[in-house]
Each structure stands twice: as C-alpha cells, then as structure tokens.
C-alpha cells in the first residue's frame, strides 16, 4: 500500500470513529474499520484516545434544574392562558368531554344524543347573532374613530391655512390628500387660498389639490370663476391646462375675457388661444 493510499484509508477510518463510539456504524462500515484498525497502529491509538475522551465527556456532570423552574413555567402557562383568547377547538374539546362516550346501547342513548345535538344547534343559533353584533359594534367604533380623525385633519388643515408662513400653508394643502370627502368648509378654504394667497407656489399646489377633487361641482365652478382672478402668468397657464384636462366648456367665456385684457403676457396669450381651440 502506498503512502497516499494509506493516508486516504486512515482518513476514512477516522471519519468512522465517532460512529464507532456511538455504535451507529453500518455492518459494512464497521467491518471495513475493523479491517483497517487491525493493520494500522496509528488509527488504533487514535481510537483509544477518542474512546477515552468520549467516556470522560460523559462523566462531566449535568446539574439538575432548580425547583423554581417548574413554578416559573406554570406561572407563565397560567398567564399565557389568561391572556390568550380561548380558541374555538377548546370549546369543542370541552363539549366532547361533557358528552359521555357513545355506548353500544339501544335507541335511548342515541335519541338523547340527537336531542343534545339539537340543543347545541339551537344554542349556537342564539350565540351567533351575538358574535355578529359584537362585530358590528367594533365596526361602529372604528367608523367613529375614523370620522374623528377626518375632522381633526380638517381642523388642522384649516388652521394651518391661516398660518403666515408659506411653508406651513403648503403643508396644509398637502393634508387635503388625506381627507377623503371634503366638506364645504374645506372646499371654500381651498378656493379662497387659490384666489387670494400671496404666494404663487401655494396657489399652484392648491390648484393641483383642487384639480384632484374636480368631480365635486362646487370645485369645478370655483376653478372656472378663478380664471379671471389670476394675474400671475404661471397660474393662468396652469389653470388653462386644468380646464383642458377637465374639458370644462364653461371656461370658454372667461378665457376669451382674459384674452381681451390689456397687458397680457404673449406666452399666456398663445396658450389661451390654444386652450380655446382645444375646448371649442
């Protein structure tokens, strides 16, 4: 046997040693190992060393857990049970434990079972609507809460719109995205901002927010009316765009009116003419 062959054989034998120690070798592996050990003193020595270590390891003592551990476990179990909602299977298991096992008796016990099941059915019938009413109550609670949230957002937005800082007013306008169906106070406040806010950025953002609510007739009307009130070319162009997007024919009159205004910006003029063409 060459040195390489021997080292491969030793390596494979040593891999089998743990299996030998725990008596988990297959018959063929065991035979192969025994054959190798018979002719390899190194591996025999290795086996003896491993065996000694293995036995010593077992002698390392394992202390027993303290008695407090059991107490703590049962306390934890109790707390867990108390905080966990009782799952339906438990009710079923309890029901089953109340019902005595079905005997091989005559009609009597079976009839009793039948009646019992009927009783259970009627009981469940009474019990179910209760469950549903609990659901309804829960839903109502959630609805109330979300209505309150909405009101709070509206309040916050309205008060922020009055803020002297343009950044705060911008923030107020962005809040309207979170408000589902806006009530008339919100729409009014937004239209007022659209027409009167000194900052053109705030007005532009407000226009954007209002355009998203254009399905509301009050908003549409407010937007049309706003056309003649805007003096900034930026706002005039943006409003004209919104009108095209909404296909708002009512805007034709104020648009033509704007064209007639004196000192109108050339770019705006071209834009307005284009808008009128697209709408008519």
């Amino acid at each position: 046997m060459s040195t390489t062959d021997k080292s491969i054989a030793c390596e494979s034998a040593r891999l089998s040693l743990p299996g030998w120690l725990t008596d988990e070798l297959s018959i063929t592996d065991r035979a192969a190992l025994d054959a190798h050990l018979a002719q390899c003193p190194d591996c025999r020595a290795e086996l003896v060393a491993s065996q000694q270590l293995w036995q010593q390891l077992k002698a390392v003592p394992t202390p027993a857990p303290g008695p407090a551990m059991r107490t703590r476990f049962y306390a934890m179990l109790d707390t867990f049970e108390a905080t966990e909602p009782v799952a339906p299977p438990t009710i079923w298991a309890r029901l089953r434990s109340w019902v005595p096992p079905m005997g091989s008796g005559g009609v009597g016990p079976r009839l009793a079972y039948g009646l019992l099941l009927l009783g259970v059915g009627v009981g469940i019938g009474y019990w179910l609507p209760n469950g549903r009413s609990a659901d309804i109550a829960y839903q109502q609670q959630i609805d109330t809460l979300s209505v309150q949230m909405q009101e709070m957002r509206e309040m916050m937005m309205l008060s922020l719109l009055e803020n002297p800082s343009a950044t705060e007013r911008l923030r107020a306008v962005s809040y309207t995205k979170d408000i589902g169906e806006a009530d008339s106070r919100v729409v009014e406040a937004l239209l007022t901002t659209l027409n009167n806010d000194p900052n053109v950025n705030v007005r532009l953002v407000t226009l954007e927010a209002l355009a998203e609510r254009a399905h509301d007739p009050r908003v549409r009307e407010g937007l049309v009316q706003s056309l003649t009130r805007q003096e900034s070319p930026l706002m005039q162009v943006a409003l004209a765009d919104v009108m095209v997007k909404l296909q708002e024919k009512r805007s034709l009159k104020p648009l033509r009116q704007m064209l007639r205004q004196e000192g109108i910006n050339d770019l705006v003029k071209t834009k307005l003419e284009k808008t009128i063409r697209e709408l008519s």
Partner: peptide, 11 residues
C-alpha cells in the same frame, strides 16, 4: 388545537 394544559405534560 388549543388545549394549552397539555403543555404541562410536555414540560
């Protein structure tokens, strides 16, 4: 299945 008491046996 919900019979938490059986946990005691396992413990």
């Amino acid at each position: 299945a919900g019979d938490l008491n059986k946990m005691g046996l396992l413990f």
